[in-house]
Nucleic acid binder design. Sequence first.
DNA 1: GTCTATATAGTGATAGAC
DNA 2: GTCTATCACTATATAGAC
Lengths: 206, 206
Amino acid sequence: MTTNDSMELRIREVAQQLFFSQGYAATSTTQIAREVGCTQALVHYYYRTKENLFRQIFLEQVLAALNLIGRSLANEDSFDRFVEQAISMYFDALMGNPRLPFFVLEELVSNPERRKYLRENFVKNPSYALLYMQFDARMRQEQREGNIVKTDPFDLMMTIASLTVFTFLSLPMYRDLLSRTDDQVKDYILHRKAEVINMVKKILKP
Amino acid sequence: MTTNDSMELRIREVAQQLFFSQGYAATSTTQIAREVGCTQALVHYYYRTKENLFRQIFLEQVLAALNLIGRSLANEDSFDRFVEQAISMYFDALMGNPRLPFFVLEELVSNPERRKYLRENFVKNPSYALLYMQFDARMRQEQREGNIVKTDPFDLMMTIASLTVFTFLSLPMYRDLLSRTDDQVKDYILHRKAEVINMVKKILKP
DNA sequence: GTCTATATAGTGATAGAC
DNA sequence: GTCTATCACTATATAGAC
C-alpha cells in the first residue's frame, strides 16, 4: 500500500508482506527481489542476510504489539469499561493487520532462538514487569471493592488473548471453508468482538 | 515411541515428528532419511513426493481430530456435563499431542490448496453437516427448556476452540518465556482445562 | 527393497564491474 | 546504488545397479 521510492524500504515492505503470508522458511530472497523488481544481490546489499532482514521486521512487529498492550492498560474507567476498551483496541488493531498473530506465532513456535531472544530482551525488561505489576494491583483493588469476581490476572490475560488472537488465526479457514466474502468476514470479526467483550464481562461478574 | 520394523512406516513416523516440530517448508526429505537411517531415495521410493508424504500424515491427523469432535458430541447428559466432558476430551487428547494444533493451523493458513482440499472433502460431506445440525438442534432444545442462555452454536464452538486450542498454541512461549519445567507446564494445562470449563459454563448460564 | 549416482533447479551469499 | 556472474550448498526427484 505505502509504496516508497527508496529501494531499501521497498524491499522491507515486500519482504514483510511475503514473510507474513508464507513464513520465513518458504520465502526466498530471490522471490523478494522479483516482486520488488530488483536483483537478489540488492536485497543482500541492504540487509546482508535474510535472517537479518527478518529480525528487523519481527522486532518492529513485536514492539508495536507490546506498545498496544501498554496503551490498553492505561485506562482509569470502571473495570468493565477498561475490559471493553482493551479488547476493542486489540480487535481494531488486528483488523488492520490480520496476519500479524500468525506471523508472530509461527516464528515463535518453530524457532526456539526467537523465544530466547524475546525472553532476554522483553520478559527480563523491568518496564514490562512493572506493567504487569500495575495490572495485577488494579485487579486486586477491583476484587476488594467487589466489582469483579476473584480472578488470576494471568488467567484473564490468557483468556482475552485466546479469544482475540484465535479469531484472527482461524480467519483464513472461516473465509475459505465457509466460502465467505470479504464483507461477511468483516461482519464476523465485529460480531466476535462484541461477543468476546460480553463473555469476558460475564466471566468477571461477581 | 512406537518403533516399527517396516521402513515404510518408520519413514512416516519420523516424517510426522519432523513436520510437527518444524513444519512442511523447513523439513527436507534428506533430513527425514538421515533420522530414519536410510537414503533419501528410499523416502521417494515409498511416497514418490514430499507433498504426497505430507498429505497422508495431514489427512490422518485431520480425520482423527474430526473423529474426536464427533465422539464428544455424542453425549446424553445435562448440557453442563456435556460441555464439561467435551472440553475435557479436547484437553486430554491434545495433552497427548500438543503440537497438533500448530501443525494443522500452519498448513491450513499458509497453504490455500489445503483449505480447498478440506472444503471439498469434509465441509461438503453430508455426514459432517449432519453432525452440526444435531448439535444445533440440541442447543435449541436446551434453550427452550431454559437450561442455557440464548447462544449461537457456531459462537459456542469458536469460543471453546479458541480457549482450548490457544492454550496449546502458546505452550512453547509459556514454557520458554516464563522458564517453566515440564511438570509446571502440565499443571498449567490442567489448570487451564478447569478454568475453561468453568468459564464456558458461566457464559452459558441463563 | 535398498542402494549409488546424478539430473535439474533453487538457495543464500559474495566479488567485482559500472 | 545497482547490476552481472558465480560460488558452494541444498533441495526434490529419478534412473539404474544389485
